[in-house]
Design a protein around this nucleic acid. Sequence first.
DNA 1: TTGTAGGCGTTATCAG
DNA 2: CTGATAACGCCTACAA
Lengths: 334, 334
Amino acid sequence: MKPRTGRPVVKITDVAAMAGVAPMTVSRVLNAPERVSAETAERVRAAIETLGYVPNLIAGGLSSRRSRMIAAVVPTIASQLFADPIQAFTDTLERAGYQVLLALSGYGSHDEDALLRQILSRRPDGLLLTGAHRSEAARRLLTDARVPVVEIWDTAEEPTDMLVGFDHREVGAAIATHFLRHGHTDMAVVGARDVRAMARRQGFVETVEAGGGRIVAEHEVPAPANIANSRAAARTLFETMEGPVAVCCSSDNVAFGVVTEARLRGLRMPEDVAVCGFGDIELSRESAPPFTTVSVDGMGIGRTAAEFLLARLRGDDSARRVHIPFRIVARGTE
Amino acid sequence: MKPRTGRPVVKITDVAAMAGVAPMTVSRVLNAPERVSAETAERVRAAIETLGYVPNLIAGGLSSRRSRMIAAVVPTIASQLFADPIQAFTDTLERAGYQVLLALSGYGSHDEDALLRQILSRRPDGLLLTGAHRSEAARRLLTDARVPVVEIWDTAEEPTDMLVGFDHREVGAAIATHFLRHGHTDMAVVGARDVRAMARRQGFVETVEAGGGRIVAEHEVPAPANIANSRAAARTLFETMEGPVAVCCSSDNVAFGVVTEARLRGLRMPEDVAVCGFGDIELSRESAPPFTTVSVDGMGIGRTAAEFLLARLRGDDSARRVHIPFRIVARGTE
DNA sequence: TTGTAGGCGTTATCAG
DNA sequence: CTGATAACGCCTACAA
């Protein structure tokens, strides 16, 4: 923006002048071609081509009050976890003529309100937020902005607006049940301490204890969990454990670290160490040995979230909230 | 955007009215607080607070001709490869008050022009592009738009504008030299066929042949290369090879696949199979065994690219082109 | 330090 | 099917 030298950037009036039509007609050729005669459209398109006109969506957005932009907030792209949802979300919206503004929030509770304010100042037509627990201030910000919002990857009693998620406590409980069913009683928890990992942990611990098992160790690694820290935690765990253990990991990265250390130590899986990850990223399937993990349909979540927003943008005001199923994929580490 | 119900979204005139000042004063409080008296600023801030005013950057951008937005185009976020550059780029620009619009281009030659046109229609104040080889049309689009552009992660005789990259052929050559120096003569190439991977491959092959070695096998996997396809390629390679081989992989994902298969087959590394990856992602360091790879300072690239853009935006018009060093990190697979 | 006037480039709306 | 006119909400430039 802001050309300094040479001729200024081409605008709609330039195209209109060259084609011998009103600016509004150029606009129509671009946004509603069916409402322009074929010959006129042809002339206009020729002018656009020779002038190299690129429409100014900032001006268009101000006038139409539609930015044709959807913002998506995810914690990080350093993990594979959110790659699928983002990709599916983006693809679906692009096909509908929207662009996605991707914002990274990090895991610490870096002032989400400030980030939202920044985003909202661009007047997105819709918003995807990861997680479903927001401050009152954030919720007010969002409702005041009157923007459709989809929260994904979590669940809450009262979502801000629309929701495409699952219950992390249930995930933890499912892992516990799975381990218990396979006869494990001594369990360990290794992982990060972000909100959702904590929810999974809680579900796991509760269910283990209710089922007659016990938690023999807990090891924390900083979020987002990397392999190095997870291996370190695993080493500590293996040095102190006194018998077979089933380990509930907060992500596949963590699980990979645990499996790797177990293998290097010659521990048998699942006899000595059972492991379950979370995420079902390629590594869980294609490393050796592959390991058991929780699979969530990330692409489905992304696509559904996009469709919910599109429906709302089409004027369909029904509330939309779905829970996406998850499942444990057993791959030999129990 | 486009509220339908209830009161309309608060705008600058509402704040001005409540604070008893002109709209311009509110604008100043937000954008140049030092030019407003403390008391006035206080009143204005109070009004902003109670009304929940969120500035409209679309309107502001149209007026000021600055979008305060920088667009970044990367092939994918499915690989860890670009996570560091993106993160560093984003962090640096955020500190300077810019937001980053992340766009994914994919690897196929999906019409880059169309993507650029879309992006430019938002009038970004600057652009980061991955790769340095563009069509003439794309270059014209970019120069006509008069936007500062940094190309990263590659090099070219005539970059579009600024450049923070390295020569992929040199990378391939360095791997070849490394293998040759360790006494390898029979080499294989496994990997994707995207532009830059091909450049590395070319540098590798040339240097191997010039150095008296020979290429005994080449295996292709679709881009972006995943572990599964890489393992499959490795299996084929190992079934057909007749002696020790040094394998040049197009990425760490590929190398992980090769190392995994080699380990499962009981092949010794590096005696039977030497492996070198590209990217130095955590997996190369923290999987077992760790493997040799090429390390590039991704964060440095991202930060430098951001700084180049910021300098240009400050009005400094000097050309900026740097080559970022890379190095081979030997980790035991030779 | 604060205010006024005008315009940024496009599209909604209504008229022809 | 096409055009004229008036916003859209803010900021530049200038004036007081």
